[in-house]
Amino acid sequence: MSDDILVKTRGLKKYFPLTGGVFRKVIGKVHAVDGVDLDIARGETLGVVGESGCGKTTLGRTILRLLTPTDGTIEFDGVDITEIKGRELRETRRNMQIIFQDPMASLNPRVTVKNSVGEPFIVNRIARGPRMRDLVLALFLKVGLTEDHLNRFPHEFSGGQRQRICIARALALNPKFIVMDEPTSSTDVSVQAQTLNLMKDLQDEFKLTYMFISHNLSVVKHMSDRLAVMYLGKIVELTPGDIFREAQHPYTFALVSAVPIPDPKFAGRAQLLKGEVPSPINPPRGCRFHPRCIFCRDICTREEPELRDVGDGHLVACHFAGELDFGESVQQEYAVALADM
């Protein structure tokens, strides 16, 4: 069984020091990732959603060891990589790639895209010159770019094309695991659909494992086999099921209810979440969601709920998981209406 697991984290934490005052003294810690246990199976896509600042990007970067974990362990392909360094770390990194939200920012504007995409071949002494060009061309063709794109500069491409260039670069070293951090949030629906379809095709072709981060729930859901919901540095719900119908954590339910439905028949919905995300510097005691939770009871302010299995691999971190009645939601009505169609 554990052979099927590619990425495994236990008690993973990443705190950032918060400095202030004239002498830049450490005056606190940002609990960006605060105890995450996660298993990502080979070949699956794990979606990660949550409001901005909840720690999605930090989680992704820490797993890739682009950030040094504060506590906990990370296993990749059966090897503990929490503390590896130097050569060993470089070797491991070849198997793990990240694609960022803003493709323009991750490409050097003064370098031709051929050289940007070919850089990993040169850095890792795999190929240079005409051989490198051939390898890059092969990647370009894979992601739907053409030969005459090779010698152009990033500003000559559209957002969707730039995203493809970044995907080509991420694929260069034949990785096993790719973290996609909001890969399509800067493009619109039609470009987004093309990019996402491409990523699915590549996943099948190269047997890739994805961690897909986004705040767009409908996109994540489309892409993912399982979906993790984060709140203030922790995973509060993780499900292989339909999050829009089977949410069990009050936060997930509120999040799902806030997604605008692309059908005017269902316009107008209850606003279930009041206030903004509390500061990750001093997360609330007990259940972190309790100040915004309409179901909060005494125990919630004292004891932190564990992430527990409520059946079929559906994990929920709420003291009252399964006992809460959320009532009807617009999302459910919409689902029923679609099913009837």
């Binding site: 892409m223 829009f244 099913a339």
Partner: peptide, 21 residues
Amino acid sequence: LLTAVPKLHDTRERFPQIRGT
């Protein structure tokens, strides 16, 4: 454009897209 909008309740599958750019 309307078919390219991800529907909330579809399962994992290809996104419909408009051909060309």
